[in-house]
Computed example of a mutant assay.
Amino acid sequence: SDELDGEFISLHEEGLHAAGSIFIVRRGSIKGSRSWIVDQERALEGDDQIGSLFFSIYSQSAPADIPSEVFVNHEPVDRVALEEWLTSLRGSKVSIKVPQRGEKVELLQTVERNAHYALVQYLSKRATDAAVSGKALLELEEELQLSRTPLRIECYDISNISGTSVVASMVVFEDGLAKKSEYRRFIIDTDTAQDDTRAMHQVITRRMKRLLADRTVNQSEVAETGGKLSKFAYPPQLIVVDGGAPQVAAAQRALDELGITDVALCGLAKRLEEVWMPGDKDPLILPRTSEGMYLLQRIRDEAHRFAITFHRSRRSKVMLESLLDEIPQLGETRRAALLDRFGSVTAMRKASAEELASTPGIGATIAAIIFGHLQNLSQSGVDMATGEILDS
């Protein structure tokens, strides 16, 4: 509309971060647009997000560049104070309005999409920024009082599918960046783990048993034969569990039972984003501006995403690797040989014990173990053709 005039500002928030965009409209035409990442330090010092955004936009503006009307998508905490501040900068009255309907609302929605896009770009860049990742790891070392920098972090999430199948995911971050080739999923034995805490105890136990088993492998011999260490052979410096005190206690109990004392542990509870340490009665509250906190959230969210998409996996190599990981007699070389020969769980399921035994490095004894394991899986609600966990 030719009658539209003013500046349209929208805020978009995700977790601890927010971005804002502005469209400058004169006589119905958009004359310019810009986006900002909201200054969280100012927001913590008393300004709300809109107030902090206004400071970024207008604090250095010339009087002639400040409009008489500013339209926003969220009501500021102190609209009057902001109006008085803008009025003093402009030298004449400025009004801040929050439209409720019509083309102004539609335009603000477009502006918010711009803000959302700007925030996605910003967060994507931060996720691969080595300097930011390094700062986050050092903050975690200090805030959690770790004995060393957590260069490898593993995070575990428990997901219930249709109330019948329970799945755990393990995601790995090294040097603050996702290492997707080492992600794993686990089907939880619900006969011994009927709730999230028992499931967490089970998955940590299973993963750490593999670590202990792989510690007995002679690394020199593996290197000499051209083999590779199992992906479970690399210990995390920090385990993060999705949950609060009960989940942390369950994970710590698993570590204690296995005599593992050199792996740190914490939990991140969703409700208030509290960090729980083993044995503590109260949680840690990390600063909203903490890079370490943001990294913990990103790792936890990635573990959750990976867990809930498990039942949608289709012929996934990760699915097959995860199933083979459940068989302790299979090292990296044997798993690679099986993957190379059969390529899918379906093909392995159709193979006889003799065919499995003819795979290089397998033999009759291990073939019998694999055969039995695959038979059990076919009876446990896993679609062998797709790797999908079936709803009952």
Rank of each mutant, 00 (worst) to 15 (best):
P99V: 11
E355F: 03
R305M: 09
F371Q: 15
L140Q: 13
T205K: 11
L295H: 11
E355C: 05
W85L: 12
R198A: 06
M293H: 10
A357K: 05
G244M: 07
F342T: 03
D214N: 13
T261I: 05
F310R: 14
A115Y: 05
Q100P: 08
S33V: 06
L374C: 01
S378Y: 06
V98T: 14
L137T: 13
S59D: 12
R335C: 04
L107M: 12
N73R: 10
Q194K: 12
Q202N: 06
Y122G: 05
V132A: 08
Q219W: 05
P99D: 09
V241T: 01
G331K: 10
Q40K: 14
F371S: 14
V70W: 03
A115C: 06
F8G: 02
V70E: 02
E182Q: 13
G28W: 03
L338T: 07
E84L: 13
R34T: 08
I50K: 05
D325L: 10
S29K: 14
I188L: 03
V263L: 00
S380Q: 14
A250W: 02
A351F: 03
E13G: 06
I204E: 01
S313H: 14
S10I: 01
A269S: 10
A269G: 08
I9S: 03
G279H: 00
P76K: 05
D262F: 06
P235K: 11
E112I: 00
S316K: 09
G259N: 07
K135S: 12
G226A: 03
A136K: 07
K97E: 12
Q109P: 04
R271T: 13
D189A: 01
M208L: 09
R184A: 09
H116S: 11
S35H: 09
E7M: 14
T128N: 13
L86A: 04
L284A: 03
G279C: 02
R126N: 09
E103C: 07
H373I: 02
D262C: 08
D280F: 03
Q145Y: 00
A367E: 01
G163T: 04
L339E: 02
N218M: 00
K180E: 02
P67Q: 01
D48P: 06
L286G: 07
L119W: 09
V111S: 05
F310A: 15
F71Y: 15
A81W: 08
D129S: 05
S88N: 13
G226M: 01
A81L: 10
A351I: 07
L119A: 09
V98I: 14
R253H: 07
A136C: 04
Q60N: 11
F310N: 13
V111H: 03
D195S: 11
Q40V: 12
L138I: 12
A19P: 05
T225V: 04
T149H: 07
A269H: 04
S61I: 00
R26D: 08
V171H: 00
L44D: 12
L324P: 07
L211V: 11
K317I: 06
I24P: 06
W276V: 04
E321R: 15
I161Y: 15
Y122I: 05
